Simulated assay, not measured.
Amino acid sequence: MKSAVFTIPIKKWQKSAKRGVGNIRVAILKSRLMPKKIKMQRINWHKIALKKHLKDVFSSGITYAILALVFLLWRFALGYQFEWQSIEPFQQPSIFIRVFYSAFTFLTLGYLLYIAYFYKVLHDILVKSMGLWSLYNGIKAIVWAFLMFVSYQYIVPWLFSVLNAGVSILFNIANLVLYALPPVGISLVLSVIYFLLKNENRKTS
């Protein structure tokens, strides 16, 4: 009677074992890096929030600018005379987008108070000297709400008005070139429209 002999492919088993160990090491490394990633996101929350909402603002503003340029060509084709026009493609975010104004305040007025040691002095007086944590937190909340109100009511509108004024100047320069040198103006406007459309499609893709 013949005995059966079973062979084990040792090399393949060693390769699979090494591959398994490598996968385990990668998983452990990812698990170690994950808290750091979350921590960095928490540290940079203001930058992430501003980038997200400003991206939406500029996306809608680009669409507005494209339509304004198309309307400009349409007016020129119909024979309208040159007129200085004021456009406002970029609109201030709504007050209900609290995270935007909180992030904006954190990077502007809040940072100014921080480098002026306002919170440190307040903490030393109320907490270290008197132990009044609740009063300290209450004053901080009131100050923060006031800073956000100032940002919404004055600073952000001023920044958007300056931005829209600059865009209006560029728009009217193109308008003037269109009427003064029609071939150059038409080429310029069409080139700007193409550039804006291409840039917008690149962002959405």
Rank of each mutant, 00 (worst) to 15 (best):
V189W: 04
N172L: 07
W13A: 06
T105S: 08
T7H: 06
L178G: 03
K37Y: 08
K55A: 15
V70T: 10
S134A: 12
K30N: 03
H53T: 13
H123L: 12
W133S: 07
S191Y: 12
W158C: 09
N172G: 04
S191E: 02
L159S: 07
F58E: 09
I24K: 10
I62K: 09
F76R: 08
L107Y: 04
R32T: 01
V127Y: 04
V167L: 05
Q153Y: 10
Q14E: 11
F146R: 00
L178Q: 06
N164T: 02
L72Q: 15
I10M: 12
G131V: 14
S60G: 00
H46I: 00
E200S: 11
K30W: 11
K51Q: 15
K18G: 11
M1E: 07
Y154A: 08
M130C: 04
L33A: 14
L132F: 11
F58G: 04
V189N: 06
Q91E: 14
P35Y: 03
I169Y: 13
L188M: 13
Y136H: 14
N44W: 05
L73A: 06
A65G: 01
P157Y: 03
R202P: 00
L190M: 12
L112G: 00
L188G: 04
L190V: 05
Q153I: 01
S86F: 02
Y64L: 00
R98I: 05
I10N: 07
W133H: 06
L33C: 08
L188N: 04
L54P: 02
E83R: 10
A141M: 07
Y179L: 03
F118G: 00
A4D: 08
W84E: 13
F106W: 04
Y117W: 09
K15C: 02
S94W: 01
M40V: 08
I139Q: 04
S94I: 01
S129W: 13
K52S: 13
A174V: 01
G79T: 08
G61H: 03
D56E: 14
R75P: 01
T105Q: 09
S86L: 08
I139W: 04
K203W: 11
K55T: 15
V70F: 05
L113V: 05
A103W: 01
